[in-house]
Design a protein around this nucleic acid. Structure first.
Lengths: 156, 156
DNA sequence: CACTTCGGTTGTACTATACAACCAGAATCA
DNA sequence: TGATTCTGGTTGTATAGTACAACCGAAGTG
């Protein structure tokens, strides 16, 4: 909230004040995007919700991890993750391997089917993105990507 | 991964191939953002979900509209909107005015309380955004905003 | 006047989510 | 060592948001 009081009081320069509308635009556009994303994700891939997709992706990136790690990474309650994991296991997209070291933990791994579905959905999502970004120049794409990364980087 | 099959087959030029990773980054970051947005929106403003917020905002922009319009604009089912509207009315943030011309339609209007809450949440959201963007230069802000607008502009 | 269209509501079901209570294994400490 | 606490995970319960289908009443149309 520090910045909330307004540019003047925070010592932000005139340049930043000019950026004020830009902040608002960013807010509006990001919000709009978020709103749409959820709505369309379900329709695009009835088999894999946005959350499941993210979980599988993370699992693939790490090559297996614990449910607790997923919960922490996505700021989800462990019960939520537990149920998601159950569903994914029921769908045979992931499997649990008991850790012989610590009998409490179960390390989650993608199954082959999981890897396949993930790749499939990834590709179809990517196609959608690519299509929407088709007429962007490489330079713009890279700058946009950099901005997004920077924006999201606050907590990672 | 299949994308990995490559740009060649899609006739995308070399420049676009360079952008391939950028597309992936954009996809990943936008997805991550969408995932977080919902999660945090609820926590920040228990009184006004992201959807309700959007609905109120739209109502304010248009200065009143029908439930059907909201449904169309946000690609929501009319039953969903109906319930959202009921909740907002119950909370006295909006009111329905029967159209004397057509007794089927009810034109939705923000109440004073609705306007107040909306402004409040808008401001607090804006503060959060502003804070996260505090150390961005005006130039970067404007470019980022422009990119987002361009990205989202596919359907408006 | 009968039929259709339109705006909206209600019944039902499902998903994602949180919080709290709980359980079992592991670690710690007196 | 035995009691206590910590940790990973599951289950019970409740809520929000959503869709789909069936319906209602008003308006338009043949």
């Amino acid at each position: 909230m520090t910045a909330a009081q307004g540019p003047e009081e925070t010592g932000i320069t005139r340049a930043a004040a000019d950026g004020e509308t830009a902040v608002e635009t960013i807010q509006r556009e990001m919000t709009a995007f978020a709103r749409r994303a959820r709505a369309s994700a379900g329709r695009m891939h009835p088999e894999l919700s946005l959350v499941s997709f993210s979980l599988l992706g993370h699992l693939e990136d790490l090559g297996g991890c614990r449910a607790t790690d997923l919960a922490a990474h996505y700021a989800l309650d462990k019960s939520t993750v537990s149920r998601q994991v159950s569903a994914l296991e029921r769908a045979e997209l992931i499997e649990r391997r008991l850790d012989p070291e610590d009998h409490r933990v179960q390390v989650l791994h993608l199954t082959d089917a999981g890897r396949r579905i993930l790749a499939q959905v990834t590709e179809s999502r990517r196609a959608a993105f690519r299509e929407r970004l088709a007429d962007w120049s490489a330079e713009d794409l890279e700058r946009f990507a950099a901005y997004l990364t920077r924006y999201n980087g606050w907590n990672r």
